[in-house]
Amino acid sequence: MAPRVVVMGLASDFGCQVQMTNIEDDLLDVLGLIDLSYWQLASSGHMPAEYDVAIIEGAVTTTEHVELLKRVRATAGVVMVIGACAVTGGIPAMAGQGDLEERYGCVYGADGAEVACGRVSPAPVKSVIDVDYEVPGCPMDTTEFLRVLSRALQGLANRVPEEPMCAICKTKENICFLDKGEICLGLFTRTGCGARCVTLGRPCTGCRGLAKDANVESAMKILAAKGFDVDEVAERLAVFNTLEEAFCR
């Protein structure tokens, strides 16, 4: 029997679910392998009570999310998180820095705290429940999504590339942004997207999260020695990696 799959979104722009629709060429093949019971972006129905695989996009930002995730974990045999928001907390996590109450006030006015009742500091899914598979990136890469889904269907363990972006970037014969005097976060960022941004002419934004192999301390020293503003480097890193332990200030 094909595994019953549900796709749901927490706090995010649903960009990664849109990416799923962009698989067009292969989508029918993929749908042939699974029983897609619910897809938040594309379904009008309700989530079924039982399913085997939960694909989750977005960061956890409310107590409702927390409760939902606990139910999902109790129901699904396999939990896969997709996109930066779900994997590292991504951009939403930036909002959790500093005084949340004060921010609610800025956004919602005097009754902010009351209006925003039930909000929690934005966090990745793994901070609430165990996660089996991850597809990082903003948005996630469709090829990687298919690869990870394939591993999940085969029952193979999650495998996240540990090394920084630079190696694959070199294989594309890109000219290093650091040599051109521009900040690039490839030194810090886990590989797996084929250095797509740099190959298209933009520095790496670090959307895939921190590489386990990254030498953050040395990289910061090196960037400083090359004359880059390390505060600016840290600020750029914070866009997707606020909650990565190595940067927690």
Binding site: E163, P164, C166, A167, G186, D213, A214, I222
Partner: peptide
């Protein structure tokens, strides 16, 4: 200590 383990 210096190496970035980047494999470049």
């Amino acid at each position: 200590e210096r190496c970035l383990s980047c494999g470049a």
